[in-house]
Amino acid sequence: MNIKVRYFASMRDRMGRAEDTVSVDGDTITVTDLWKKASGGQDLPASTLIAVNMEYTDSAHAVKNGDEVAFFPPVTGG
């Protein structure tokens, strides 16, 4: 299955791209594992807001085929 992944703010800089399409074996994958796969084995940084299909959720959420997963680090500028 294919999952669309989007990176925002400093996460986009860190990854060097705004989005990915990650192909995953099986019917479901947790956000944590999806992040690992997309980032080449890194741990998901603490203080990251996760949205699946633009709804706030946690890293244990099971992602399904066709879902869009977005990662939002906090933004502080004012």
Binding site: A9, S10, R14, P45, A46, S47, T48, P73, P74, V75, T76
Partner: peptide, 8 residues
């Protein structure tokens, strides 16, 4: 919690 500095 506030994030590590380099993330933000």
């Amino acid at each position: 919690e506030p994030p590590p500095e380099d993330l933000a």
